[in-house]
């Protein structure tokens, strides 16, 4: 129950900060779409636009949840609840991912409709499955990063640093195969890369189920690492007294 309560709570918070939602969920994909519209957009480019927007939003919304809670003094009361705070954080990151994904999807669809560009999705069912996985991967990444960023006082700077490398390593801007050979293995541990490959395949009519599996496994790993990192954050905070009462 607390998972869903936290999810709704986070969505309400984001709706109350609607300017932030418009910036990340509407303006960001529109800018990307305007760039790719100079050529005829394909399902692959539209997918990349959605995922780039989603990743950028995840870093600033889901991944920043704990840091914002700490800044606003709401982390301490959250930790003092009897509910498992990891479930609360998980609910919040899920809420953030779902809301932002819905807004981005709606923006992209509306934009393509209004601009008269038709994008054909060869296998809509698997594409939808891929999109669902996108929400889960975003939640996992947000969950993990939120905990990691809280361990460092340089969370905002790390957030900014996380956007571009992950975008590159996921193959959203350019194919991973054109990256330098020594850097390509890094992309293997980025779940977004595999989800992007699966979505692209589903759009072309050739879904890559290995990519789907790898994306799912990595997502589970992110959740586990996030839970471990959170426990570490909680223990450190109780040892050092870094969760202020006011």
């Amino acid at each position: 129950m607390i998972f869903f309560a936290a999810m709704r709570h986070q969505m309400a918070l984001m709706r109350a900060s609607w300017q932030f939602l418009v910036l990340l969920g509407v303006l960001q994909p529109v800018v990307y779409l305007l760039i790719v519209l100079s050529s005829n957009p394909t399902a692959a480019t539209v997918t990349a636009v959605m995922l780039m927007s989603f990743w950028g939003s995840t870093v600033w919304s889901g991944a920043g949840i704990l840091r914002r809670e700490k800044m606003e003094g709401t982390l301490a009361p959250t930790m003092l609840g009897v509910r498992d705070p990891r479930l609360v954080l998980l609910g919040k990151t899920t809420g953030a991912s779902l809301l932002i994904l819905v807004v981005i999807s709606a923006t992209v669809s509306l934009f393509l409709l209004l601009s008269g560009h038709a994008v054909v999705i060869a296998m809509p069912f698997w594409f939808a499955v891929g999109l669902a996985l996108v929400a889960v991967t975003g939640t996992a990444a947000g969950f993990l990063l939120s905990c990691l960023f809280l361990l460092s006082r340089y969370g905002p700077q790390l957030s900014a640093l996380a956007v571009a490398p992950v975008t590159l390593l996921s193959g959203l801007l350019i194919p991973v195969s054109v990256l330098p050979g020594w850097i390509q293995p890094l992309s293997w541990v980025i779940n977004l890369r595999w989800v992007q490959e699966f979505l692209g395949g589903a759009a072309r009519g050739a879904p890559d189920f290995t990519a789907l599996g790898l994306g799912a496994v990595l997502t589970v790993v992110y959740f586990v690492l996030g839970a471990v990192a959170f426990e570490r954050v909680a223990v450190l905070a109780r040892k050092e007294g870094t969760l202020d009462l006011s």
Binding site: A5, H9, A12, P77, G81, S246
Partner: peptide
């Protein structure tokens, strides 16, 4: 808690209290 923090400023008093009540079990 004393001080200005510890509440979600953009949400209503009712929403704040409901959320913290659920956290409290």
């Amino acid at each position: 808690f004393g001080g200005d923090g510890g509440l979600y400023g953009r949400l209503s008093g009712r929403d704040n209290l409901r959320f913290f009540a659920m956290l409290a079990g």
